[in-house]
Amino acid sequence: SQVHIGNTTFTFDNPEKAQKYAEKYAKKKGLTVQKNGDVWTVE
Rank of each mutant, 00 (worst) to 15 (best):
V3N: 02
F12M: 03
I5C: 04
P15K: 04
K27H: 10
K20Y: 12
P15H: 05
F10L: 14
T9A: 05
N14R: 05
G6I: 05
A18M: 02
Q19T: 02
Y21K: 00
T9W: 15
E23I: 07
T32N: 11
E23L: 12
K24N: 14
K20H: 12
D13M: 08
N7M: 10
Q2A: 11
E16T: 09
T9P: 02
N14F: 03
W40H: 03
A18L: 03
T11K: 11
T11C: 10
K24W: 15
Q34V: 14
V33G: 01
T8P: 02
Q19H: 09
E23Y: 09
T11Y: 15
N7K: 12
T8I: 15
K29W: 15
D13T: 11
K29G: 05
T32K: 11
N36S: 10
H4Q: 13
V3W: 01
V3A: 02
G30I: 02
E16C: 12
A22F: 06
N36L: 13
G6W: 09
E16L: 11
G37P: 01
K20P: 03
K24F: 13
Q2S: 09
T41Q: 07
T32P: 03
E23Q: 08
Y25V: 10
G37M: 01
E43N: 11
E43R: 08
G30A: 03
T9M: 12
A26K: 02
T9S: 08
K27R: 08
K29T: 10
K27F: 06
E23A: 07
Y25Q: 06
F10H: 09
V39H: 13
G37E: 06
N14T: 15
D38L: 10
V33F: 06
Y25N: 04
E43C: 13
S1F: 15
Q19P: 02
W40Q: 00
K27Y: 07
S1Y: 15
V42S: 03
H4G: 02
A18V: 00
K35C: 10
V33S: 02
N7I: 06
Q19L: 10
N36D: 12
A22L: 07
K24A: 15
L31G: 07
A26R: 00
G37I: 01
E23V: 06
V3G: 03
K17A: 15
Q34T: 14
K17Q: 13
G37W: 03
F10E: 00
T32S: 08
K29C: 15
K29M: 13
A22R: 01
T9L: 14
K24P: 00
Y21H: 04
Y25F: 11
I5P: 00
G37H: 03
V42E: 01
F10C: 12
S1G: 13
N7S: 12
K24L: 12
E16Q: 12
E23M: 06
L31D: 01
Q34S: 14
K20S: 12
S1Q: 07
T11L: 14
E16Y: 11
G6V: 05
F10Q: 05
K20G: 07
T32E: 05
E23F: 07
E43D: 12
A26E: 01
V42H: 01
N7V: 06
G6H: 10
D38Y: 09
Y25S: 03
D13L: 11
F12N: 02
N36P: 01
N7P: 05
H4R: 15
T9I: 15
H4L: 13
T11G: 05
K28D: 13
D13S: 12
I5K: 03
H4C: 14
K24D: 15
V39F: 09
H4I: 15
G6F: 14
V42W: 05
K35Y: 11
A18P: 04
E23C: 15
Y25D: 04
W40E: 01
D13P: 12
Q34P: 02
K35R: 14
F10T: 04
G30T: 02
F10R: 06
Q19W: 08
V33W: 06
S1K: 07
H4K: 15
Q34M: 13
T8N: 11
K28Q: 10
A22S: 02
T9D: 04
I5V: 08
Q2C: 14
K20N: 12
T32L: 07
V33N: 02
Q19F: 07
Q2P: 04
I5G: 00
H4E: 05
E16I: 11
K27W: 06
K27E: 12
P15N: 07
T9Y: 15
D38I: 05
I5H: 03
E23G: 00
V3D: 00
K35E: 01
T41F: 13
T8F: 14
D13K: 10
N36C: 12
P15S: 07
A22H: 00
V33M: 08
N7A: 09
K28N: 08
W40T: 03
N14C: 14
Y25M: 11
P15F: 05
F12E: 01
K35W: 08
T41L: 11
K24S: 14
D38S: 09
E43S: 13
A22T: 02
S1M: 10
G30N: 05
K17G: 07
V39M: 12
E16F: 10
K29A: 09
E16N: 08
D13G: 08
L31H: 06
Y21C: 08
N14E: 10
W40P: 01
G6C: 15
K24G: 13
F12I: 03
G30Q: 03
V33K: 01
K20D: 13
N36T: 09
V42L: 06
T41R: 08
T8D: 09
I5F: 06
G30V: 00
F12D: 00
E16R: 08
F12R: 01
T41G: 02
T11Q: 11
V39Q: 09
G37K: 05
V42T: 04
K28S: 10
G37R: 03
K20M: 12
K27P: 01
S1L: 10
Y21V: 06
T9H: 12
K20T: 09
T8S: 12
K29F: 15
K20R: 13
A22P: 01
V39W: 07
F12L: 04
D13F: 10
T32Q: 08
F12C: 06
E16K: 13
K27M: 07
